[in-house]
Amino acid sequence: MGRKKWLLAAGVLVALVFPLGLRVPYHQHILIMILVWATLGNAWNLLGGYAGQASFGHAAFFGLGAYSAGLLVHHLGISPWWGMLLGPPVATAFALPIGLVCFRLRGPYFALATLALGEIFRLVFTNWVAFTNGARGILILPEFTRKLPYYYIMLAIFALSLVMVRVMVNSKLGYYFVSIREDQDAAEALGIPATRYKLYALLPSAFITGLVGAFYMNYVAFIDPHVVFSLGDVSVMIILVVMMGGVATLWGPAVGAAIYLALSEAFRARFGAVSLLPFGVLVCLVILFMPNGVMGEAARLGKRLAGRREGWGGEPA
């Protein structure tokens, strides 16, 4: 236990000091994006990893968070930073009815329903021009010209999400989430109200996703519906990040985001426009041969070495 604490303290120190040493803004940008994806991964992992409800529509909550911030500027001229207060509750408020409807479905049907949902939001925000400015998107003036303030804000959001996930999965909630994932009928027979606990996973997940969306608006300063409600670049990318790092592991999303971003940037630099092809092949290989992700495989290896089980993570059923 002592070693773990030292490791964590060292990690925090590195996270605080390391970007100061980076002189190239691009490198700082990569770090910020790793934190963005790690946090989105944490949010998704709560619902998709622990509670086993694989959402293919998290772009809906991301986009709602981003537009909450963007539209405050666009319509009212209020600083988009207020969007960071507005975005999360807006995403959560939309998540509630969505959950009540979609949680009637199980497995692939749930996944398809959420996939359709993300697309619905993209189409509505593209075509409701009077309110959303449509496909022209929303452009704001960024608050800071340097990257560092954004880095520390995003680091705080990441830390918040990590603590939140950790506290939740180590409580009764975590046991209930995993029980529902493993066998919903058995869980209900044990007195677990499955729909209610799925909502307990979804709402914080949407909250964090909306918060990151609002941050994204502030940081990138330009959004349009095709970017923030994207199926491939948001909804599916979140899933790939978590799968690469390790589904239902605490550090999986962070590790996955770091590897994913590093690799995709490296491939982009090396192969240019065709980078998606080798990258896609690599992702397929990871999913085929490391279905538990990096942290999942590490836990399995550790378990084999120590002869015991670690975390909720998992080998496929």
Binding site: Y175, V178, S179, E182, D183, D185, A186, A187, A189, W312, G314, E315, A317
Partner: peptide
């Protein structure tokens, strides 16, 4: 349950 339903990965 007759067909047992263990929560397999717990």
């Amino acid at each position: 349950f007759q067909v047992v339903k263990p929560l397999r990965r717990m």
